[in-house]
Design a protein around this nucleic acid. Sequence first.
DNA 1: TATCACTCTTACGTAAACGTAAGGGTTTGA
DNA 2: TCAAACCCTTACGTTTACGTAAGAGTGATA
Lengths: 162, 162
Amino acid sequence: MPAETSAEFLSLLKVGDIARRTGKTVRAIHLYEELGLLNPAVRSKGGFRMYRGDGVKRIEWIQKLQDMGFSLTEIKVFLRVWGESATAPKAMATVREIFTDKLRETRETIARLSRLADELSESLAFLEGCRSCDQGQHQRECGGCGRSDHEVPLLVDGIAKR
Amino acid sequence: MPAETSAEFLSLLKVGDIARRTGKTVRAIHLYEELGLLNPAVRSKGGFRMYRGDGVKRIEWIQKLQDMGFSLTEIKVFLRVWGESATAPKAMATVREIFTDKLRETRETIARLSRLADELSESLAFLEGCRSCDQGQHQRECGGCGRSDHEVPLLVDGIAKR
DNA sequence: TATCACTCTTACGTAAACGTAAGGGTTTGA
DNA sequence: TCAAACCCTTACGTTTACGTAAGAGTGATA
């Protein structure tokens, strides 16, 4: 029996340790286990979940996928297809496919948000003009500061509409 | 009584019309009303909600704010502070503030997603190398193709971890 | 061995943004 | 005036990713 075994055993982490190292809650980690996303390496005699260090990595991985917009269920599917791919190249191909899709989707999201950011900028520029407006005027009587209707960005125009 | 009045009355839209024109469901529009985001101009004698054309604009506005990440509750607050601002310039200032915050937030989100897109690209590049892997090898025996551990992107590395 | 901080399982609670169904009126056009 | 197509209110259901609480056992330390 190699020394490795006892050494690894000694460095096992309890669920609370994992939680602290990842910023997740114990409940979240339990949930990941229910969903089959992360299993403890072993259980202690009394039933405590004991993890190795790579449990932390797995959770960071889950976090990253979540940030990219994967749901936990999708991540579960991800792991399932991985496990079902008999050969390494096939598994890698599947992963490539998923990542490629997500990359496209992420880029679309970025493009969409960029457009929205532009609209926000436009709206802010428009609102700058309101500084020169009559300071005592009631907002419900705002006449649009003499600017024609089609100049008003939807983001601003929509507010006043019933 | 100007002709405008009857003309506007004749062109009133029922909730189903609004739904069709905005792609929303009737239920969603009802919800917006419950939340105080959109009220019908009038009710018909029988109780039907009757909207003017700007109801469509209001819903498009709501949609845009949702796209930017505002929750319906936040939009409600938005409208409330607008309504509570006595003067036009004050109201505009409040709106500017909200938009400025959201613009910053949107840009942060874009930056975050860009970093994730980069990680995806890196991971995909890494996975390209797996094409040359032994085609018959079982995925559980993947040795990392001889590439050292620190070259493996987290997005890829996390998959194999327990 | 007594404690105190953890952990276990079980299970109900939560917030968002609607979906869906029930039971019953309303409009409108033929 | 009759039927099809809408609309009304009320109210419970759905999904996601956990939060929270209860009651009880476990592990390391003094």
